[in-house]
Amino acid sequence: MSEIHIVRDYPHSPVKVWRAMTDPELIPYWTSTGKGARAEGFELVAGTRFRFVAKPMPGWRGIVDCEVLEVRERELLHYTWIGAEGETPSHVRYRLEPTAEGTRFTYHHTGFTGIGGFAMAKLLGSVRARMLTVGVPALLAELDEAGALLPGAPLRLARSR
């Protein structure tokens, strides 16, 4: 079974990182480094079914069906991931740990099976690494400590157009 395991340290508080990673209004700013999926129907409540909706591309309908399984505020988010109809769910976990310098964020996606799963883990792994290395830091730089977009932040300006 293949998996994706990425750990990043951010020089920001767990409150700020949690908000960036879980606020449906902010998620598109870091997924696919700013061109990404909208989280439709997402709530931080176990049992919530939601979808990530992005631009379709050849071989992918642009929708990921998910269900929140577990939430521990500013510490853990665990949800299922179904990228294609009829696919067995895989599992995504976000873990946040406070550090002396800010927050350690761990992204762990498990449940990829077979050769197709191996290929998908490789593809998604490189995309996720870029999101967490480029997209998330860019978003965090434009948020205040409570996780709200700063006045005049380029993201706010781009969004209002």
Score class of each variant (00 low, 15 high):
F42N: 03
F42H: 10
F42D: 07
E43L: 02
L44M: 13
V45G: 02
V45T: 09
G47F: 09
G47A: 10
T48E: 09
R49D: 13
R49P: 04
R51N: 09
R51Q: 13
R51H: 10
V53S: 10
V53E: 08
A54R: 07
K55N: 13
P56N: 12
M57C: 06
G59I: 09
W60A: 15
R61N: 14
G62W: 15
I63V: 15
I63C: 11
V64G: 02
V64M: 06
D65E: 12
C66N: 04
E67H: 01
V68F: 05
V68D: 04
L69N: 04
V71M: 02
V71Y: 06
V71S: 04
R72Y: 05
R74V: 11
E75T: 12
E75P: 01
L76S: 06
L77Y: 06
L77D: 00
H78G: 03
T80S: 13
W81R: 08
I82P: 07
I82L: 14
G83M: 15
A84V: 12
E85C: 04
G86F: 03
G86N: 02
T88H: 13
T88E: 15
T88R: 15
T88K: 14
P89C: 06
S90N: 13
S90A: 15
V92N: 03
R93I: 00
Y94H: 11
R95Q: 07
R95D: 08
L96C: 01
E97V: 08
P98H: 03
P98W: 08
T99Y: 08
A100S: 09
T103H: 07
R104T: 00
R104L: 03
F105M: 14
T106S: 05
T106P: 01
Y107G: 00
Y107R: 03
H109W: 04
T110H: 05
G111K: 07
T113K: 10
T113I: 06
G114R: 03
I115H: 11
G116Q: 11
G116K: 09
G117H: 05
G117I: 07
G117L: 00
F118Q: 10
F118G: 10
A119E: 06
M120T: 15
M120L: 15
M120Q: 13
A121C: 00
A121S: 10
K122W: 11
L123A: 12
L123D: 09
G125L: 06
G125S: 00
G125N: 04
S126M: 14
S126W: 13
S126L: 14
S126V: 14
S126P: 04
V127P: 01
V127I: 15
V127Y: 09
L132V: 02
